[in-house]
């Protein structure tokens, strides 16, 4: 963690990413190289956060980015931003890998394998949020909403695992994830709108 980059320093505005994505969908390799430069730090960082292993993260980030190229024509801009689509692909790849690895150890040990203390995880990612709006909006959530969302997303946990970890009933965690995200959405909408 000694040589952390400045997250966000290479980020392109969302609209640029959308435009690049359209060119990539037409098979434009130069546009893909630009798209890589615009999103790679977030794709790699997210995957590494979930997998907690640099070597594995490099492999999975590569798979995710190649998948972006391969399936670019399937991206539907009416359903959301290109950046959102790309990060969803990356996150799912990482989570799939975590769960495949976990499937090879005893099921009983599953909860124990994701053993990052949740307070540390939440504190760290909150501290690193460059986007002031996201950080501020996360503060408007209840503690349980925030913990449920951040543990699931950055920890790659299922809501069942989150419920176990937080010692909270399953239906409560499910509901808090949803209403927490709705509150976050509404807050971000005001901030960016």
């Amino acid at each position: 963690m000694t040589s952390e980059p400045e997250p966000g320093s290479q980020e392109a505005a969302p609209t640029d990413i959308d435009a690049l994505m359209r060119a990539v969908a037409d098979g434009d390799r130069d546009a893909f190289a630009d798209l890589y430069d615009a999103v790679a730090s977030r794709v790699y960082g997210l995957v590494r956060r979930v997998l907690r292993d640099s070597g594995l993260a490099e492999e999975v980030a590569q798979e995710a980015l190649v998948e972006v190229w391969r399936t670019a024509a399937r991206f539907d801009p009416s359903r959301g931003s290109a950046a959102g689509w790309i990060f969803t692909i990356a996150h799912r790849r990482a989570v799939d890998r975590v769960r495949a690895e976990q499937a090879t150890v005893d099921r009983e040990r599953r909860a124990a394998t994701a053993n990052v203390p949740c307070d540390d995880l939440i504190e760290e990612v909150t501290a690193r949020l460059e986007q002031q709006a996201v950080r501020r909006c996360l503060r408007t959530l209840t503690q349980l909403q925030r913990e449920s969302i951040l543990l699931a997303y950055y920890g790659g946990l299922t809501y069942r695992e989150v419920a176990d970890r937080l010692g909270t009933p399953l239906p409560t965690v499910k509901t808090r994830m949803r209403d927490g995200l709705i509150r976050l959405r509404d807050c971000l909408r005001v901030s960016w709108g």
């Binding site: 790679a40 977030r42 790699y44 959301g80 931003s81 950055y154 976050l184 971000l188």
Partner: peptide, 14 residues
């Protein structure tokens, strides 16, 4: 889309 905003937090030079 909302969730994707969280990917900002972990950006890191690959």
């Amino acid at each position: 889309e909302t969730v994707a905003a969280l990917a900002e937090a972990t950006a890191e030079t690959p």
